[in-house]
Amino acid sequence: MSDRLEADSSTNPEAHLEEPTHLVAAAPPGASAMRMRAAVLAEFWHYFSQNRGAVAGLVVFLLLVLTALMAPVLAPHSPTQQFRDALLAPPVWVEGGSWKFILGSDPLGRDILSRLIYGARFSLFIGVVVVAIAVTGGILIGLAAGYFGGAVDVFAMRVMDIILAFPSLLLALVLVAVLGPGLGNAMIAIALVLQPHFARLTRAAVMSELRREYVVSARVVGASHLRLMFVTILPNCLAPLIVQGTLSFSTAILDAAALGFLGMGAQPPTPEWGTMLAEAREFILRAWWVVTFPGLAILVTVLAINLMGDGLRDALDPKLKRS
């Protein structure tokens, strides 16, 4: 009985004795890290794909990304070229429409379809930049507040509360009014308004992780504050942030469109969807297509991203997993 330990390690009976239900424990001992990652991905897809809406949202979103990338190939005209002979031309299926302007043209004779296709680039760009700024700022503030607690926490969170107390669009409007209108400033303003959500989410996640024993264990082996915050704790807080990031992506697009509509965002002739709406405001009754299609583009994009976000939440949030 002296070589008991060797015996049990070679046959590895524990994995066999305990939790036979475990998904990945059943993998053969020699499996590579790649296969493990594939298994994790497969599990993620299993949960994600159970949500039909999420899959549909993902497909629409991927199409949108493709459209944005291939805009010069797909668009029939330049987004800024003015056809003076075809002002407010109706869409092809309406009487008087032509295949030249499939979705009609705007008051300056520009092709709406081409402008929408190029507009997808702006919308995605806005979403990516705004979410990136908001997530980075939110994580830094939330991490500091949750980790250090005390006065740092109180101060940071009260500032966040003040930002959250304003109607978000109004605050963004004020910021743009101060910074000056333009797409860049609009993005900064929206990021600033969205950032408290990330800060609060990060803080809550950090505070619950901080109590876990693996954090204490890392402290016992001598990890510094920065290492604990960024290497030990942060990776474990990412799942809710990814979900919030997706949902904020659509909020950013929506807010940018709203600022554009109010004349504070992207300036004409930029083919940004909200700006397009604003330019066409006075023609709503005469030419319905100039407002309908940019509006629909915003609606479909935001809906698709929100559906995808819901699916991500189902797949990433362990609390919602399993029945």
Binding site: N12, A15, H22, A25, A33
Partner: peptide, 22 residues
């Protein structure tokens, strides 16, 4: 790893792939 009764093959795995005893 070998001293505590595991094998070098376990080096690259994540904790959730192990049982409580391991």
């Amino acid at each position: 790893l070998q001293k505590v009764g595991l094998t070098p093959a376990h080096y690259n795995r994540y904790p959730h792939m192990f049982s409580g005893g391991q």
